[in-house]
Design a protein around this nucleic acid. Structure first.
Lengths: 196, 196
DNA sequence: CTAAAATAAACGAACATTCATTTATCTTTG
DNA sequence: CAAAGATAAATGAATGTTCGTTTATTTTAG
């Protein structure tokens, strides 16, 4: 029998992400996607059940990649300051190196697709984070806080910086670029708030 | 001549927001919207130039409402702690009282529509914020920070809490509700980080 | 009356998906 | 080793549906 051309599936996935980022969800049509990926419309349905399945599969793939990138060189038993910095740098680097994928995931996160895209990978990732936090609390490196409070303070500022960076503009519509210096300065403030 | 029925325009706006929140941007069709609003499809085009104009106008209306709510009982000359708390409570209350509108605005913010929805109201609002911050720095109530760093630490955590609350679930898929106690606890941490 | 509001019906275009057919590759046979 | 058969990949064309928008007509208030 004829063998699958994996390049075609990946072309479909890649172009789908690009189209959603450029034109929004209503700009993603199966026929235009097929043309962009250099493939017949019917071919898409060999790899994906339907349009929704395509979006969900792409979402899972990208989420897993991002989770992996975030956990690189990270150990839940690290000192809190070091571990948090490692994660900030990992996340920042991933976002800067994959702006389109990042944009796609954010667009998913705030759309009705969000509920359908919860994966088990997220669970593995969350458990690592949970252990990291409890270690830090036990060692007196971190205040005892409700986990949602901790998360909000520890990560939301980073993602806001990333958002500024990706839009290219800061608050007063002034050009903005997120440097490692910016990251460290912000992290300094956050850590001071979180310390016991 | 016949007079405009303002109720019809508002019904169109309201239903449009509901449809986008429930079904996403690709779930908003002019014919379904007309049916939901109890109106003929052609009537929508009396009030709005086209579909894009409809979305942008709705976005502007809701942004203005939210900016107003945020600035209620707020004065840029307030003490930093008091002023920030006032804004947190204002924003939190608005989000909790208008979850659907909030969800709509977030969906806009991460979509390609975002660029087309920048309003002058945002500018007025941003200027008030800028003055508030410079006052606080001059009085020694706040560290001198790049404005994007300040903003990321001062507000992103609040919006993350709101996001948890609106989804109804916290980090470990456990039920989560944002109470005034949660807000104050988080604000405490943030303020500690931002103080000189 | 008049003029704008409101509508029902209709427009071509684009939509997601399917179907009948062709193409490419592996397996079996001589 | 080569030709035939088997099978899934891949396709172009067509399906009926729904899309955003317009037009011709009716309704309603000043």
């Amino acid at each position: 029998m004829r063998t699958r051309d994996e390049n075609k599936e990946q072309a479909i996935r890649t172009k789908a992400v690009e189209m959603v980022v450029r034109d929004g969800f209503d700009g993603l049509s199966m026929q235009k996607l097929a043309k962009a990926a250099g493939v017949s419309p019917a071919t898409i349905y060999i790899y994906f059940k339907d349009k929704e399945d395509l979006i969900i599969q792409v979402c899972h793939q990208l989420s897993a990649r991002m989770a992996d990138a975030t956990l690189a060189d990270f150990d839940p038993d690290m000192h809190f300051d070091e571990g948090l910095r490692r994660q900030w740098l990992n996340r920042a680097r991933y976002c800067l190196e994959n702006p389109v994928e990042m944009h796609f995931l954010e667009q998913i996160r705030y759309s009705p697709f969000n509920e359908k895209c919860h994966s088990k990978t997220d669970m593995r990732f969350r458990n690592a984070m949970k252990r990291f936090v409890h270690n830090a609390i036990d060692r007196g490196e971190l205040q005892r806080l409700p986990v949602e409070v901790y998360w909000s303070v520890a990560f939301a500022p980073l993602y806001q910086l990333v958002k500024f960076h990706m839009s290219g503009r800061g608050l007063a519509d002034a050009p903005f670029e997120m440097t490692e210096e910016t990251i460290d300065r912000t992290l300094e403030v956050v850590l001071r708030g979180l310390k016991p």
